[in-house]
Amino acid sequence: MELVLLRLRPGPDRPPDGLPPSVLVSLLRAAALPSDQLEHVRARPGPHPGSLDLALFHRHAGPRPPEASLRLAERALAASPRLTGWTAEPASPQSPVDLDTLHER
């Protein structure tokens, strides 16, 4: 199983609206394709106002899981008018995701 950590942020013209992590998890599951091999998704509020941290678990490493996770997140963001202007980015070493605080929804 391959783990990919992402951070989603609202755009500069979008005020943080406190999107529940469970809503984002549902959007990601709905946007997932069989080829994504998505097994689990966990989410929690991120460190920046309105941001969300994600942990995506894929069934196998396959070709380029980080890029596949970003594409999946971008599909989910594009499918929801509420998330217009949001961006997805890899969680960086300077802003790590604390796995102990992630909750599956």
Results as ranks from 00 to 15, higher is better:
91 A>T: 02
64 R>Y: 07
37 Q>Y: 05
26 S>P: 03
8 L>V: 13
1 M>C: 10
84 T>S: 14
25 V>Y: 06
58 H>I: 02
5 L>P: 06
33 L>T: 11
31 A>T: 11
48 H>Q: 13
22 S>A: 15
12 P>S: 13
8 L>C: 13
53 D>V: 00
91 A>F: 03
58 H>F: 15
17 D>G: 15
87 T>G: 10
59 R>C: 09
28 L>Q: 03
72 L>E: 02
30 A>H: 14
65 P>A: 10
73 A>I: 01
37 Q>W: 04
61 A>E: 14
12 P>R: 15
42 R>Y: 02
54 L>T: 08
21 P>I: 02
53 D>K: 00
103 H>V: 08
65 P>L: 07
85 G>Q: 03
61 A>G: 10
104 E>S: 14
29 R>H: 13
99 L>H: 14
71 R>N: 11
15 P>C: 12
7 R>L: 05
101 T>N: 08
90 P>T: 06
65 P>E: 10
104 E>N: 08
45 P>W: 00
75 R>L: 03
46 G>D: 08
7 R>E: 15
102 L>V: 00
20 P>L: 01
6 L>N: 08
20 P>F: 00
37 Q>R: 13
7 R>M: 01
103 H>N: 10
101 T>C: 06
82 R>A: 15
73 A>L: 00
11 G>I: 02
2 E>L: 00
11 G>R: 01
53 D>A: 07
37 Q>T: 12
105 R>Y: 14
16 P>S: 03
67 E>R: 13
96 P>S: 06
95 S>Y: 10
7 R>V: 13
51 S>P: 02
10 P>M: 11
99 L>F: 10
40 H>A: 12
69 S>K: 00
96 P>A: 03
76 A>F: 05
54 L>P: 12
104 E>A: 14
61 A>D: 13
15 P>L: 14
72 L>F: 03
50 G>T: 08
45 P>T: 06
45 P>A: 13
15 P>A: 13
40 H>K: 09
4 V>P: 02
64 R>K: 04
46 G>M: 02
2 E>F: 05
80 S>N: 09
14 R>D: 07
36 D>G: 03
96 P>V: 00
55 A>N: 00
48 H>V: 13
81 P>T: 07
54 L>M: 02
50 G>I: 06
100 D>Y: 13
63 P>Q: 10
98 D>R: 11
35 S>N: 07
2 E>R: 12
66 P>L: 08
